[in-house]
Computed example of a mutant assay.
Amino acid sequence: MLIAAERLWTEGRLAEGLAVEADAGRIVALRPLGPDTPDLTVPLLMPGCTDLQVNGGGGVLFNADPTPEGIAAIAAAHHRLGTAQILPTVITDAPEVMEAAAEAVIAAMGQSGVAGIHIEGPHISPPRRGTHDPRFIRPLDERTMAVLRRLRSAQVPVLLTLAPELADPALLREAAGLGVVLSAGHTMATADQTRAAMADGVAMFTHLFNAMPQMTSRAPGVIAAAILSEGWCGLIADGIHVSAEMLSVALAARPRPDLCFLVSDAMPTVGGPDRFSLYGMEIHVENGALVNAQGSLAGAHIDMLESLRRLIAMTGMPQERAIAMATDLPRQAMGLPALSVAPGVPMRDLIALDGDLHLQDLPR
């Protein structure tokens, strides 16, 4: 089958006039279309998105089902919505839950759609815990370090979100030395504490603006330090967690335009029913937001392609830059190789989009 793309995402840019030859579910060639008549023409062909913060999907919460089967269900739900690879994200919970999640990801690394693990908490700041259960919050300790060593010995990419001001700097340095990507989040860190933590290995910021003290004229805090740094910043672009204006401010103020990426912070309602249980509390969708009984935000009800569309609508960002934030840049932040449109790549890892960036059917 010959598939022509009016635009095709390759090597970090949108190229025109290219076509993909596919056979038996895989790309066999990428070449100029030339005079050939394609079997199918699509407005945009690109690798599926990569999402570094996926708490759940398809009705499954990773914390509640930390098994290879739970991961497979979550990954499949996001794959149907245009995301090729995810980091299943386990949030603050009992140590046994984190350990089970780690073993599940180790077992699942061979299956499609799993790029590693994101451990978000429990080493966070209680005042900035959000919906994380305070019963399980604790400083970074040897038990978690053992989990990190186990994951890295199995060559699993690991993202760890923590409040760096509460962590032993020696443990931060050890974790970074293992190859764990350390991200500041759910934190009360000052700007000075943030810069010190970056010197100890923190290289990323989790859902910038959210679960952080807001910057003011005399207290720039972690947000200003993050924006002005060379660190990676994840952004939730649902229009609920962060306003369009603040997204634009953060993007404009970065020292380089390629240091921000999109995350969904998706919960089980993405590709699933409109409610689920977290720590024994019901979380439900209300006016597009996920809220608990008190009306507080509890994760996000959005997938990566919808995030991409909203980012462009809210900021006026060119499509090329926005696509990078959903594909190549999160992978660079984790040290993962880029997903490419190239010979040998399974067609299931590609997505076709129409002119409004909605999914089109693509032969697999």
Rank of each mutant, 00 (worst) to 15 (best):
G344S: 07
M267K: 02
E16V: 12
E99N: 10
D93R: 05
R7C: 00
G299T: 00
T50L: 06
A342L: 02
Q360F: 01
A191D: 14
C49R: 00
T89R: 02
D356L: 09
M267W: 02
I27L: 14
I240Q: 13
A176S: 15
N292K: 03
N55F: 05
E286K: 09
L2D: 01
E320I: 03
F136W: 15
D23R: 15
P169Q: 13
A338F: 04
D354L: 02
V42M: 00
A203H: 06
G316L: 11
L182I: 13
D354E: 01
V20H: 01
I106D: 09
L52I: 11
A338W: 05
T315W: 04
V158S: 02
I312H: 00
T144A: 14
V341W: 00
R128E: 12
D51T: 11
D23M: 10
N292H: 04
I27R: 00
T92Q: 04
S296L: 10
L251R: 08
R364L: 08
L159V: 09
E21D: 15
G239E: 05
P43I: 07
G280W: 10
L40E: 04
S340C: 08
G59E: 08
V181Q: 03
G110L: 07
C49V: 08
L171E: 06
S264N: 01
L148K: 00
Q332Y: 10
H79M: 14
G272K: 01
I124G: 01
P255D: 08
G231A: 15
A102K: 02
L160H: 05
S340A: 13
A326S: 11
D356R: 11
M46D: 00
P122M: 12
P255I: 07
P95M: 12
I27F: 04
R364A: 14
M109V: 11
S125Y: 06
L172K: 04
G130T: 11
S340T: 12
A252N: 09
G295V: 06
H79P: 06
N55E: 10
A191H: 10
V54K: 03
A342H: 03
P213R: 07
R348V: 13
A115P: 01
M246Y: 08
M212F: 11
V54W: 00
M281K: 14
V147N: 00
V222C: 05
P318H: 10
P47F: 02
E230Y: 05
E69Q: 15
H207V: 04
L339M: 13
A197L: 09
L8P: 00
V181Y: 00
P66H: 07
L308N: 02
P257V: 04
S217K: 12
D258K: 08
R128Q: 15
I312M: 14
R218H: 15
S296D: 14
D133Q: 08
T92C: 09
A252K: 11
D93A: 15
G12K: 03
R150H: 10
N287W: 10
A237H: 04
L172Q: 05
M1K: 07
R218I: 11
A250M: 14
L61C: 08
P32Y: 06
M1N: 07
C233T: 09
Q193V: 12
R364W: 06
T41C: 11
G70Q: 02
G295Y: 07
T190N: 10
G116D: 05
D349C: 06
R143V: 12
R152K: 15
E103R: 15
C260D: 07
R26C: 12
P343I: 04
G344K: 06
A313H: 11
A191K: 13
P343K: 06
E69P: 10
L52A: 05
A163Y: 01
H78D: 05
